[in-house]
Simulated assay, not measured.
Amino acid sequence: MSTHTETALESFDADWQEWHTAHERHRAHPHGFLAVTHLHWLDSSARRLDGVPGTWSAVDDAVRIVLEAGESLQRDGQELNTGSGATIELGSIEERGGINLASGDTVIEVAKRGGEYIVRPRNPENALLREYQGTPAYSPDAAYAVRGTFVPFEAPRPTTVGAAVEGIRHVYEAPGEIRFKLAGRELALTAFNGHAPGSLAVLFTDQTSGKTTYAANRSLSVVPAADGSVELDFNRAINLPCAYTDLATCPLPPAENRLPVAIEAGEKIPYERQDPK
Rank of each mutant, 00 (worst) to 15 (best):
E24W: 00
E24T: 11
E24K: 05
R25W: 02
R25N: 13
H26M: 13
H26T: 13
R27G: 01
A28S: 15
A28P: 00
A28I: 03
A28T: 13
A28Q: 11
P30W: 12
P30I: 12
P30G: 12
P30A: 12
P30D: 11
H31R: 13
H31W: 15
H31P: 09
H31G: 05
H31I: 09
G32A: 13
G32K: 05
G32V: 05
F33R: 05
F33W: 15
L34N: 03
A35C: 06
A35F: 07
A35L: 09
V36P: 00
V36Q: 11
V36L: 06
V36Y: 03
V36R: 11
V36M: 07
T37V: 12
T37D: 05
T37K: 03
T37L: 01
H38I: 00
H38A: 12
H38T: 05
L39W: 10
L39N: 07
L39G: 02
L39Y: 06
H40A: 14
H40I: 12
H40Y: 12
H40L: 09
W41Q: 07
W41V: 09
W41T: 08
W41K: 03
W41L: 09
W41S: 01
L42M: 02
L42D: 00
L42I: 04
L42W: 01
D43W: 04
D43G: 04
D43T: 04
S44K: 09
S44R: 13
S44W: 04
S44V: 08
S45Y: 02
S45G: 00
S45H: 11
A46P: 04
A46Q: 06
A46Y: 00
A46M: 05
A46H: 01
A46G: 08
A46K: 01
R47Y: 00
R47M: 00
R47T: 06
R47F: 00
R48E: 15
R48A: 15
L49H: 08
L49M: 10
L49S: 11
D50G: 15
D50S: 13
G51E: 10
G51P: 07
G51V: 10
V52F: 09
V52Y: 11
V52N: 10
V52C: 10
V52M: 10
P53W: 06
P53V: 07
G54L: 08
G54V: 04
G54W: 03
G54E: 05
T55M: 13
T55R: 15
T55Y: 02
W56M: 05
W56F: 04
W56P: 02
S57D: 12
S57E: 14
S57P: 02
A58D: 06
A58K: 02
A58N: 04
V59M: 06
V59R: 14
A62L: 07
A62I: 09
A62N: 06
A62R: 15
A62G: 14
A62F: 08
A62D: 09
